[in-house]
Simulated scan of single mutants.
Amino acid sequence: MIKDAIEDIKRGRPILLFDSDDREGETDIVIPAISTTAKDVAMMRKDGGGLICVSIHPDAAKKFDLPFITDLLKKLENNGYSNLLRVVEKEGDLRYDSKSAFSLWVNHVNTFTGITDIDRSLTIRELGRAVKDVLSGKSFDFGSEFRCPGHVPLLRASDNLIYERRGQTELSIALAEMAKITPAMVVCEMLDDISGKALSKDDAKRYADDKGLVFVEGRDVIDEYKKRRERGVL
């Protein structure tokens, strides 16, 4: 199943990715950013219902000077916003991990409001193109192409990916690396309209079967990624 997921990612097809039972216990719809269409965004907001975010490889995030939002907010203390420090995430605040991956929220400069399916897909594709360009050695001026605040949250993957953190952010970038595509991936949590919670793993699997999509578990991504790293093929 993991190899099927990698092949579909390589072809730009959506897959379903479950992190783990002892973490968030959530299934995300995952699509390569560079090939995301307005129809894909519509599918994610209707069938997923969670945040539609873009995971970015740590090397690209560094070249863009993208901070973790927690680090950025901590710098406000000396600029007259000391009370805001009370809302900044602290160690132990999260029940599912040691830290979150959130960076900035952006719109591409050619969007209108930024929230429509067309606008968000444009921002997402351009983020994919930006990551591709900067990792290929081309110069890229992030501030000339994107504006903040916006409607597409960026997730900065941890430096050592799944060896450091095993969230959907790192798992999706690990999949991109194994598929040898641009490591910028759209992720969107699947929610349950009835329970108000995350969609159960069983229901997510049924959805995958109904739609002809691959369902893969985070542990399988981790195992395959480690094997390929040990063999030196990554």
Rank of each mutant, 00 (worst) to 15 (best):
E7A: 15
R11N: 13
G12K: 05
R13Q: 10
P14E: 02
S20H: 12
D22L: 08
G25A: 06
I31R: 02
I34Y: 04
S35C: 09
T36M: 04
T37G: 02
D40Q: 11
D40G: 11
M44C: 13
R45K: 13
D47I: 01
L51M: 15
I52V: 15
P58H: 04
P58D: 06
D59Y: 07
P67G: 06
L72D: 07
L73P: 06
L76D: 09
E77A: 15
R86G: 07
V87T: 15
V88R: 05
E89C: 15
K90M: 06
E91C: 01
R95Q: 10
S98A: 12
F102M: 08
N107V: 14
H108D: 12
T111V: 14
T113N: 14
T116D: 13
T116V: 11
E126Y: 05
V134F: 03
L135P: 06
L135G: 10
S136T: 10
S139R: 10
D141T: 07
D141V: 11
D141L: 12
G143D: 10
G143C: 02
G143Y: 06
E145D: 11
F146Q: 07
H151I: 08
V152C: 12
V152I: 12
L161I: 07
Y163M: 13
Y163R: 14
I173Q: 02
I173M: 01
A179Q: 09
K180L: 02
K180Y: 02
T182I: 12
T182H: 09
V186W: 06
V187Y: 06
C188F: 08
L191V: 08
I194V: 10
G196P: 11
K197R: 12
A198I: 00
K201M: 09
Y207S: 03
Y207I: 05
Y207R: 08
A208E: 01
K211T: 02
G212A: 09
D220I: 02
D220L: 08
V221S: 04
I222G: 00
I222P: 01
R228T: 05
L234N: 00
